[in-house]
Amino acid sequence: MRVLIGSPGCEFLAGARLSDLVAAYEEKLADDPMIKTLKEKTGKSHLVFIVNGVVIKPEMFDQIRLQTGDDVRIQHPYFGG
């Protein structure tokens, strides 16, 4: 099941939790210099996950089940330039 069009093209089984996707994405970004610094300084990546146009609060990550065709976007904390 390919659910992502706004982030790395990971494959997930239908019904996977959003939290699985979040974990996979954060792992993929482990060496990203900006995310690494943010985690060192604040303990968090501060990524925002948006599913089908709805911003998902972190406490909901476990409750969202991904389905084929879902539009998942990931917003990084950066701004400017």
């Binding site: 210099p33 610094t37 400017g80």
Partner: peptide, 12 residues
């Protein structure tokens, strides 16, 4: 504002 970018660009 966009001033936040300096801190995020430094590690890059």
């Amino acid at each position: 504002g966009t001033a936040m970018a300096t801190a995020l660009f430094a590690p890059q």
